[in-house]
Nucleic acid binder design. Structure first.
Lengths: 243, 243
DNA sequence: AGTGAAAATTTTGTACACAAATAGGCATTC
DNA sequence: GAATGCCTATTTGTGTACAAAATTTTCACT
């Protein structure tokens, strides 16, 4: 059975200490952020094990971690499925995210050094490029990573953790409740505006922009959509392709 | 090897569907909330397995869950230890808790039905009884459960999850930074005052009381600033400087 | 004694085998 | 024809064996 390929889409921390289950975790996490894994999709342990070339033990650890972040639901004796929040749950998640993002924004305005704000800008440029190139999946993921980077800059690990869980859940919500025709991402224009407000240390404006930003997500939660179960193998073809 | 005894100290949900690793998780979690497990304590997988009469597989799952809640630290290839937050980490945790508790308090004032507020009162009475009887451990745990119950009443599962992690981490902080002579718990008087404010739907007062409540925890952090004499790194942090 | 390397022991990481639970098909019954 | 119960195939849950890593002990040498 072949090993996992080293490459992974998301940010690989400078310390290359990622273990096998980290890699599996990140692949699934990214697939969800990029909306390649639809809400409700069943995650079979053995299939995943074959796809990633590891035993079920490793898959199980990754799933358990995703389960704790509420990104997937672990049903005892019935396996894991990608979470598909109800409308009410979705509203609760967005509310929680408002709470978290407000705190993060205030911390960043107060404390983040200018150098990090520049890094933020680069991330948004990358995001913009992806949408320009038509790589919608990566664009959506980078949009989420923008918010994670903000939380990182807030320099508060508990909030960062919370944010990670919320951002990925919001990705699921967008995937589930968005009409196919509409533009599906929080627009990078708004990210640029936010960066400017932060750079000018205008806390009130920054928070206002952030809340406005979240209004867009919440606004979409009025109409329904039907998720379609996908084939695990095709979603993770990037893993198999490396051998 | 005998099985796990069914009884467990904490709230047993009405659906008795707790599995073995839930039970192990709850036992360790309670031990931390009751401050019977000191920060820094090594958690050996095999020893725990013998104690609870289950295999390492189960222990591992419980530890992984505790690790995700940041209550213990999982060091790759080196096992798990009860978290012992540094002063800076402690402040970050308390800050995050302010964010969470503020949101929770506002939600509860706005939405919680009177019947649940009555249940809260009973919980505080129980807490008071424990301290009166000298059962400090249970008192501290119930004090934490008061705050968890509040988060439950906020009817927002993501916030409840976050709160669970923060309350237990705060328990660790108190265990670690408190001077032995001082009274060690958030006093139930304050809990009673808070309940009254909630009952009167006085949001501003309720939030003010809650923040005041958290001030007490934070106040202890500034007085005492030398946690563990064995941590060379913090002692020589000035030498290492900012990387 | 003090130092450092190497062996021995302990502890964690991973795979796998088997047990338990679940889901789906099929026949039987009303 | 729908409902019920049994049987089988699949999937998840748990224990255990062995591999890999870290820790401790031993011991030779200065």
């Amino acid at each position: 059975m072949n090993q996992i390929s080293e490459k992974v889409a998301s940010t690989k921390g400078p310390k290359g200490k990622r273990t096998q289950d980290d890699i599996v975790y990140e692949h699934i996490f990214d697939a969800i952020l990029e909306q390649r894994l639809a809400p409700g999709t069943k995650l079979n342990e053995e299939s995943l094990g074959e796809i990633f070339g590891v035993s079920r033990t490793i898959i199980r650890r990754a799933l358990s971690r995703l389960g704790h972040e509420q990104v997937i639901v672990l049903r005892p004796n019935r396996g894991a499925v990608v979470a598909s929040p109800t409308l009410e749950e979705a509203k609760q998640i967005v509310f929680a995210r408002r709470v978290c993002e407000r705190a993060v924004t205030e911390l960043v305005v107060d404390n983040a050094p200018a150098s990090q704000i520049e890094q933020l800008k680069k991330l948004v440029q990358e995001e913009q490029d992806c949408f320009a190139k038509g790589d919608k999946g990566s664009g959506i993921r980078l949009s989420g990573e923008f918010h994670l980077k903000l939380a990182e800059m807030a320099n508060n690990p508990p909030l960062l953790n919370f944010q990670r869980s919320l951002v990925s859940q919001c990705s699921l919500i967008i995937a589930q409740y968005e009409k196919n025709g509409e533009k599906s991402h929080c627009s990078y224009d708004e990210h640029y505006e936010l960066i400017d407000a932060i750079k000018n240390r205008d806390k009130e404006l920054a928070v206002k922009l952030m809340m406005h930003h979240l209004d867009h997500i919440e606004h979409k939660l009025s109409l329904d959509d039907e998720p379609s179960p996908d084939d695990l193998r095709s979603i993770f073809s990037n893993v198999l392709g490396e051998k």
